[in-house]
Design a protein around this nucleic acid. Structure first.
Length: 259
DNA sequence: ATGACAATCAGAGATTGA
């Protein structure tokens, strides 16, 4: 089972790029972030025509997550538990059954800038709730993964110019510690389970020629619980997508599971 | 130190992103 995560930066603006990518790459499952669309306006027909089942959790203007799957989507839930007053659409879950059942969680973690400030507080509070949900996924002892745009640069080697990010919410010590605290519960960060060393990025800013200079950061991640990590065949970043027509500022990241 | 770039909503320019 091949699963991709992709922050598309607006489904309406990305219809062409997204269609081309799906046709070429053929993921079994794709978790999407920043659909920037309400559910009613999500072009689900376009994906259903390609054989995907579609689950969305959108809001007006910003944020929004979705799951596309060639397998049926079961037990779909929307919203990260732990705060009934949180109206931002950043979390969706569904179970996908291939050779094995896998619980798929798609997430768009808050950016958190400027830090410090209320947006940074919201980011850290959201990560506390993510920690709680992650504990639950461990307790289930069934294959589960959390994939998406974490808006966290885990280590200096995950940025071309780490010093430029020292005061940014994506690289602040508090953000990185909260990320580690989740990983250290017993999750496997899939990319780092397969590939060591610097120079691997999933985001390049539209500004200042970041792509041309390869001035990127790695912020799109897969965290696998132990039962899911047992199934990991491979994980890679589809870097060349960034060079396409009207690209997102993120590129897809993949896992191949024996599931 | 700032802005550069892009998308959305709205129908200009502010807001958000990273």
């Amino acid at each position: 089972m091949k699963i991709a995560t992709f922050n598309i930066n607006g489904v309406k603006a990305r219809i062409g790029a997204l269609t081309d990518w799906l046709d070429a790459a053929q993921p079994d499952v794709a978790v999407l972030q920043e659909i920037k669309s309400v559910d009613e306006n999500f072009p689900r027909d376009m994906f259903e025509d390609k054989g995907y089942n579609v689950a969305t959790h959108g809001q007006k203007g910003f944020n929004g997550v979705a799951i596309l799957s060639k397998f049926p989507l079961e037990d779909i839930t929307r919203g990260l538990p732990g705060d009934d007053t949180d109206e931002q659409a950043r979390w969706i879950e569904a179970t996908v059954v291939g050779q094995k059942a896998v619980r798929i969680c798609g997430l768009y973690l808050p950016n958190g800038n400027p830090a410090p400030g209320p947006k940074f507080d919201y980011k850290l509070a959201w990560m506390d709730r993510l920690h709680t949900r992650a504990q639950d996924l461990l307790a289930q002892e069934e294959p589960a993964l959390m994939a998406g745009d974490y808006n966290v640069i885990p280590l200096a080697e995950d940025a071309a110019r780490p010093d430029a990010w020292r005061k940014d919410a994506l690289f602040m010590p508090e953000s990185r510690a909260a990320f580690r605290r989740i990983v250290n519960l017993g999750f496997t960060e899939a990319f780092r389970a397969r590939t060591a060393g610097p120079g691997h990025y999933s985001f390049w800013d539209y500004q200042a020629g970041s792509w041309d200079k390869n001035d990127g950061i790695r912020i799109d991640h897969f965290l696998l619980n132990p039962q899911c990590a047992d199934l990991l065949n491979d994980c890679w970043i589809e870097k060349q997508v960034r060079a396409g027509e009207k690209p997102s500022d993120h590129v897809p990241v993949w896992v191949d599971l024996a599931a």
